[in-house]
């Protein structure tokens, strides 16, 4: 009984999940979590604001469509896209080859370096590489040196990352053999564990870490140690679209190119992230 049922259920799921429909784009619906500050967050009047809402309204004006942003839990993000509840996902989602099997990505619109938050007196603060950014792809030699230094400082420590992020991939590749890597479902829970002392440092991208330090009880913590880009961190975050909607992806890519050229993306990045994250 159970095997035919499972097969039946997956067939039904597959049939309905891939139901797509071509249309000429007048309105485009964007799905966001509304809880991934400062990429996107919900303000006190329950409106979704942040870097991604600003950027997408700009892009939509360029391709002359009306954009509607709706909130969606991460758990329902992909089913929602595939069922047509919305047409674009923008949720600080990193572009990876593995994910390209299921959906299409636009060109990256942000690529922030990754760094660590730890207590101000952590040994990371004394490293020579403290505060510098290293590109794992473009200058592997220097980055490798910084990485060695980092590994020595983190030996025997516990590092917290959010599950299924490029940071988790990086920690898996470079830190797992010398430190304990703990994976959290959300960044909120990881921040709690940093403050209770269960973890010694957390690894995430710069805007997220800056938001952690904005919390009221973060005065003993700082962004310290080396920062990294490239390598496991990939090419950055992009919009996720259905594979059937290649026309819409192309439109957004053209609009992104124009927005990079006239400095709009940089403007939003400085407004929300305080640093320039254009890829």
């Amino acid at each position: 009984m159970r095997l035919p049922l499972a097969i039946g259920m997956s067939l039904i799921a597959a049939t309905f999940a891939t139901a797509a429909h071509a249309k000429d784009w007048k309105t485009v619906v964007i799905g966001m979590e509304g809880a991934y500050a400062p990429y996107n967050l919900t303000d006190s009047s329950s409106k979704i604001v942040g870097f991604e809402p600003d950027l997408v309204q700009d892009l939509c004006a360029r391709i002359k469509v009306e954009c509607k942003i709706i909130a969606q839990d991460w758990d329902g993000m992909i089913p929602g896209l595939q069922a047509g509840k919305f047409d674009v996902i923008m949720d600080g989602m990193s572009i990876t080859d593995e994910r390209k099997g299921q959906i299409d990505f636009s060109a990256p619109y942000a690529n922030a370096p990754a760094g660590f938050v730890a207590a101000k007196d952590s040994p990371l603060a004394k490293l020579a590489s403290n505060g510098k950014v290293f590109d794992l792809t473009k200058s592997p030699a220097e980055a490798g040196k910084a990485l060695d230094e980092l590994r020595a400082a983190l030996k025997g420590k516990t590092v917290g990352v959010q599950v299924s992020t490029t940071h988790a991939t990086f920690a898996d590749a470079h830190l797992k053999d010398i430190a304990t890597v703990k994976e959290y479902k959300t960044t909120d829970e990881r921040d709690l564990d940093l403050k209770s002392g269960r973890i010694d440092a957390e690894l995430d991208d710069y805007p997220i870490l800056a938001a952690v330090l904005d919390q009221p009880d973060s005065k003993d913590y700082a962004i310290i140690g080396p920062q990294f880009a490239g390598g496991e961190f990939g090419i950055g975050v992009g919009m996720g679209l259905r594979k059937a909607d290649a026309d819409l992806t192309a439109k957004f890519n053209d609009a992104l190119k124009a927005a990079f050229a006239d400095g709009s993306v940089k403007k939003y990045s400085l407004k929300w992230f305080k640093i320039d994250t254009t890829p």
Partner: peptide, 20 residues
């Protein structure tokens, strides 16, 4: 199963296998 779903964005298969 949820982690595999997040990594690959394949929604139903990992959940169905976990269910089984």
């Amino acid at each position: 199963a949820l982690k595999i779903r997040n990594d690959t964005l394949i929604t139903y298969t990992p959940l169905l296998i976990a269910g089984a």
